[in-house]
Design a binder for these strands. Structure first.
Lengths: 351, 351
DNA sequence: ATCAATCATGGGAGCGCTCCCACTGTACTT
DNA sequence: AAGTACAGTGGGAGCGCTCCCATGATTGAT
């Protein structure tokens, strides 16, 4: 029909077919070259590559996805835009790690947002409708339906931070328990005796593990369970302030505080200062996360560093391996990796 | 071939065809319903919607992209993973804003990373190969080839922060000039007289504008150009320290510093404190960005807030409008929006 | 020299959708 | 009564690729 140009419609990008014509070979052969199949002679390969370069050919992803039934992309599912998640450096660092891991591949990264449960159900549908090859879940709550939906739809997924001890999904976590224990052991070694802790929301498994680590360190040092001094908070600065006030009221002579996040430590610091306590002279303070806040606090905050970017990288590696795995999902389920990355105590002036 | 099932291969997700069969209509009609075309009778629409719900049908994005030649997704191009860009809250906030704006649409967000020029060329090819409908560029350097490549390939794009005064692309920026001027005017109104500034890299246009704002405020207050006290830095903490040392050497009696970023202000603060200067008693300090650092610094830092999330939102709105615009690119070029959002001075104890 | 295996290659079929043309039926005109 | 308009619909063609089968050329074994 129409203007007579048989193939190379000058507008638009070149197609496989045009490359094939130019190189004087068939479509299949070009496809083989593009995809690095070994079953092509050197001569032919060179000819095709030249044609590709001359025409500036780039495969059409949509066509490839449709034909091959894979998308060469993975999604990171981010908790709803309204959440405080974004305020934390966690997000950037995870994404940074994912980006690094993806740089070596030709996979792309899709960022999806989902707040409420209904939205997350819709998202599961959407993701499974062959939109992505796999999913990275960050900051998932214990009762989130998404992980199970993805499991059911057989979409490969990796979760950051276990939801509970027997996390069924492939997971990558940092060693919250050991990190907390190291922080408290450090305080003990500096001669502190009345060591309190401010916890995060205990329905977040990592927060529970940090509390366990605190208790374990005290026990190891011969302290009885009754010496534990625990105030629950919720990872917020305001929560940190309230918890610190509570602790000071309960135990005015405390000489150290381990806060389960830097943000809460910052809140605690304000209350301590207002109460006339010097840091670290009167009260030593240790945080968790080693965020920018820790470095810029006054005095700089000793904190437990989590290798967050490395977690992002590792999650991606695990996911890519899962995607590449030819075995049926039922088989894989039994050998899903559960990786725990070491944390590290960064000592600064606050302790 | 083979197992006899004519259509509904029980594995896999349902297709348009299956929905059509179920609803007793043709493929075209289902497509019309899915895409909200008005040319469908109420009865038919209801029947199709029921079939869609029953089968849990979700359109295959790849097929749609291939047939309709659009992808319903946009890309955010992020400077290379190695850059410090990630360390800044800027990134999260922009993405947050983009996510918010996208939540109302069914567009998806692709995050792409590109470091060197070669990578960025490759990326331009890739993006233009019908992978995305439009591109959001953040933190672009003055000599980045990517914007021009995209222009050439007729890929709709919006840039955050103009590269120069006559930015040809659609752009969304914050009012760096007015923000800096407000900061310096504030310092003047507090009785400060010897006001220095620490600049960012001046090849970043925004940094130049902040310097211009500083100069303008001084001029407006009747200070001669010779009273300007400028030290150049590079947006880093270390740069802030060095610049502060230089300023202190040149003008020991300075009583205020306007740093073009919070991070540099943090570096300056360290040097000031080491030199025995009290903040704000001896030297008032103002930053730019109003990042987490500003809130947690001691004393808390007065800073110029940029509406970064809103910039992300606005950029997205502009891009979506550009994508929807049916006029040819040549026409649009003349009326590309150049939006400048207001900044706001957040007063804290450091000034 | 003959046959089997292997390699390299071309091209048909089909992935699931949108676009558009052709067709039917109903409502309104003159 | 015949004509015109248009709302509503079905389905062919085709988007650009991968997969796979058929084919011919080449090699090695007997």
């Amino acid at each position: 029909m129409g203007s007579g140009q048989p193939k190379g419609r000058s507008g638009g990008r070149p197609t496989l077919e045009e490359v094939a014509a130019r190189a004087g070979v068939g479509r299949g052969t070009v496809s083989r070259v593009i995809n690095g199949s070994p079953r092509v002679s050197e001569r032919t390969r060179a000819a095709v590559e030249e044609a590709v370069a001359e025409l500036g050919y780039v495969p059409n992803t949509a066509a490839r996805a449709l034909a091959a039934n894979r998308t060469d992309s993975i999604a990171v599912v981010v908790p709803e835009p309204e959440s405080r998640f974004f305020a934390e450096p966690y997000f950037s660092d995870i994404v940074h790690g994912v980006g690094t891991a993806l740089a070596d591949t030709d996979m792309q990264l899709l960022l999806t947002f989902a707040g409420g449960d209904r939205e997350r159900r819709r998202l599961a549908q959407y993701l499974s409708a062959h939109r992505v090859d796999g999913v990275l879940l960050v900051s998932v709550h214990a009762d989130d339906p998404l992980p199970d939906l993805l499991e059911q739809l057989e979409v490969p997924a990796v979760i950051s931070g276990r939801r509970r001890a027997d996390e069924p999904l492939a997971s990558v976590d940092s060693d919250n328990f050991a990190g907390a224990r190291a922080a408290v052991t450090h305080l003990l070694s500096r001669g502190r005796r009345a060591i309190a802790t401010i916890t995060g929301r205990l329905d977040v498994y990592g927060a529970q593990l940090r509390l366990d680590g605190y208790r374990d360190a005290l026990a190891q040092a011969g302290h009885g369970p009754e010496e534990a001094l625990v105030a629950r908070a919720d990872f917020t600065e305001e929560g940190g302030r309230r918890a610190m006030e509570e602790l000071l009221a309960r135990r005015p002579d405390l000489d150290a505080v381990f806060a389960a996040s830097d943000v809460m430590a910052s809140g605690a610091r304000q209350v301590l200062r207002r109460a006339g306590r010097r840091i670290p002279d009167d009260v030593a303070l240790v945080g968790f996360d080693d965020s920018a806040i820790a470095r810029h606090m006054d005095p700089p905050l000793t904190s437990v560093r989590q290798p967050i970017a490395e977690m992002g990288r590792t999650m991606t590696d695990v996911l890519l391996a899962e995607i590449a795995d030819p075995r049926p999902p039922a088989t894989r389920r039994l050998t899903r990796p559960r990786i725990v990355l070491p944390t590290e105590l960064v000592h600064r002036a606050s302790s």
